[in-house]
């Protein structure tokens, strides 16, 4: 690669974009979660602490921000997971998940 050509252009704050158009699926959190957990978590089943429903993590709603991601339950909009990344730390808040069950041994 040519030195100096690798210049991501900084984005201005897209404040006019509605939250709805920024909503992604749990799939979008898979890369960040892989920095914390070795097995893929998005195929696992998460039980929401807010409404008690169980869904695949990949089917939850993800709102991505500069510092990290907020993962919400599509049923009750409660926060299931929060992941933030700082230059030196990864920070996971999973109190919105009663449990996350993944298949083992494959």
């Amino acid at each position: 690669m040519k030195k100096g050509s690798r210049q991501p252009k900084r984005r201005t704050v897209a404040a006019d974009r509605s939250a709805d158009s920024l909503r992604l699926d749990g799939n979008a959190a898979a890369g960040l979660l892989s920095e914390i957990f070795a097995p893929d978590l998005t195929a696992g089943l998460a039980k929401c602490a807010g409404c008690g429903t169980t869904r695949a993590v990949g089917a939850l709603h993800v709102y991505s921000h500069g510092m990290g991601m907020v993962v919400r339950c599509p049923g009750c909009d409660g926060v299931v997971l929060r992941v933030a990344r700082t230059p030196t730390r990864l920070w996971l808040d999973a109190r919105g998940a009663v449990s996350i069950v993944i298949s083992a041994g494959n």
Partner: peptide
């Protein structure tokens, strides 16, 4: 801007749900 021979960083494969 990418041409044959150029390099960039990637990680993967990612995601076990939408498969």
């Amino acid at each position: 801007e990418l041409h044959p021979g150029d390099k960039f960083e990637l990680r993967g494969p990612i995601g076990g749900y939408f498969v």
